[in-house]
Write a protein that binds this DNA or RNA. Structure first.
Lengths: 333, 333
DNA sequence: TTGTATGCGTTATCAC
DNA sequence: GTGATAACGCATACAA
């Protein structure tokens, strides 16, 4: 038989009803150990795999999660590819299917829950009217549950490193965006600077390497040697690196650079960037896990939505400072 | 009613049986126009969306496509992110769900078909035992249907451009891999060189920028000014660019560089790479479309698998030469 | 051309 | 603790 085994096949082989088999899977505590063993044996023998669609149909469920990437398509970065791998892995383990979707197509077809990434302030009007459990990837000020890296801690790490490495001036290159993650990164920088009795300086750009590069070149006379640039993204950091190189500044002795993200770009740079690396893949698995948890919790107690809207889920992963070639004290690994 | 409309709801509203509604969807030619209009109206009014799971269950189908990425996870490139967007878009339009999977987990859970990318020679033993319709992304010598860009034409474009731009020496930097796409790219280069009465020169590396860079630096004395490097990937091209810059060669006047791929990396480079750009997203949609077509064809006539194994599907997309800053005749866009 | 009955694989409900 | 039955939404086969 090359046909796929069903609950019924297992039941016959184990000499029980298919309900018993179903229970062994979903409510094992209600079945005696003897029967359980028989069923397990039969399942193994037939290599039983539950039928995704039947499960979904019976449970009035889709077993589909939509991952909505709210970014222009041409911005698609390796960042999202990595995130996606994490999400996909977690969903597969729980027999959920994935739909990768842009906002435009997000409304066609039903699903059990939403995973949203790249949400900007203006998107929340739309997000608010979604009527399924939702998790965001990225901190936000709209009271949505989310997973992110600890952005403030990240720039604390970066700024502290710059201080410890003996850079005298430490300038923050931020992203010109009124978003929560950016505020947190700037705050991490500012607090660390102030605690050390230093004067914070922040400049902001669109998140493109060329803008940072132009700025460095145009303001070159203002930067004294022994300056470190703490950046809010690896993109900006690469621009800074280029600007310094074009102006024949020395990296890392005269000028230090620290990026943020640690996905792909940092390694493409030359010299390779010292950066604050986010565990993006792990974070992807985690948002997915939390969403599934939320979905399964929502099912049993249907006493109105949002039984306890107060305890918001905010999971922060600690980023890690990867020391490479754009700061002093560079350790070869 | 916030509950989701079913076939039955539509049927009631239109005063027909649910079978008529089903037919309007699947076999519209069997229904009279009057009824069709009624049904359409009811569907619109109720915003009817077919139930994915029920469809799958009734058809003995999963409506799940597995996308298998056979690459080390840390190699994940923007290339795959882009490809994925194309695949996802096409699948969504046809109400198929996606499972992104690594080879390790590829065997758990059923699916209707496989989309495989990054397949190397050694993977085919495993691929051969897959018992569902399969499409590869990337040309191959194992008789599998595939979509790819026209690799040979791509290096023809690159080499011709180098010739037209007046470079005297044209050297090919290839990837050290016994794979079909690499052979095709090398052939495109060689044929074009020979047709022009020139002497081809090929050097090969692992696909890492540092290897190309080291080679350029170590063999610097061998390269006369007015040489163009035609590369088999943007990664290699970036390495070449760096090598030339480290040796203080002039780009593009003394040395030209042409990359291959045109996803992300080419724009990160500085100066920006002239490259052979593949329409990766379009290609993603196309493999998906072909796979769905193959799946739907396989259903009706079940007269043994592979009714016509002879006509292999090989779809090649023409890549495009994007002129930027690493070759002469650079046009600003 | 249209409607009725049946089954896909699973789970919840209710008997036993 | 275990089994029979109905139901989830749709599509196929058959009847009208």
């Amino acid at each position: 038989m090359s046909t796929i085994a069903t609950l019924n096949d297992v039941a016959k082989l184990a000499n029980v009803s298919k309900m018993t088999v179903s229970r062994v899977i979903n409510h094992p505590e209600q079945v005696t150990d003897e029967l359980k063993q028989l069923v397990f044996k039969a399942m193994k023998e037939l290599n039983y795999q539950p039928n995704f669609a039947a499960k979904a149909l019976a449970a009035n469920t889709t077993r589909i999660i939509k991952l909505i990437i709210l970014e222009k398509v041409d911005t698609v970065e390796p960042y999202y590819a990595t995130l996606l791998m994490g999400v996909a892995q977690e969903l597969n383990e729980h027999q959920y299917a994935l739909q990768v979707v842009t906002q435009k197509n997000a409304d066609i077809g039903d699903c059990d829950g939403y995973l949203i990434t790249g949400a900007r302030h203006d998107d929340f009007a739309w997000i608010d009217q979604l009527n399924r459990p939702t998790m965001l990837f990225g901190e936000n000020r709209h009271n949505y549950d989310y997973v992110d890296s600890d952005n403030k801690y990240g720039t604390f790490l970066a700024t502290s490193a710059a201080i410890n490495d003996g850079y005298e001036e430490i300038i923050f290159f931020g992203i010109e965006l009124k978003e929560s993650f950016e505020y947190s990164r700037e705050r991490g920088y500012m607090d660390t600077m102030q605690k050390d009795g230093r004067n914070p300086q922040i400049v902001r750009f669109g998140n493109h390497s060329s803008e940072a590069q132009n700025y460095v070149e145009n303001h070159w006379h203002e930067f004294k040697p022994n300056t470190c640039f703490v950046c809010s993204s690896d993109r900006l950091a690469i621009g800074v690196e280029r600007g310094i190189q074009h102006m024949h500044g020395n990296i890392p002795d005269e000028f230090g650079i620290i990026g943020f993200d640690g996905v792909f770009l940092d390694q493409i740079a030359d010299p390779k960037l010292t950066t604050v690396k986010q565990p993006v893949m792990t974070m992807g698995s985690k948002v997915a896990a939390l969403l599934l948890q939320k979905i399964n919790l929502a099912l049993p107690m249907s006493e109105d939505h949002d039984p306890d809207r107060n305890n918001r889920v905010e999971v922060m992963f600690s980023p890690e400072l990867i020391r490479r070639q754009t700061t002093r004290n560079y350790h070869r690994s």
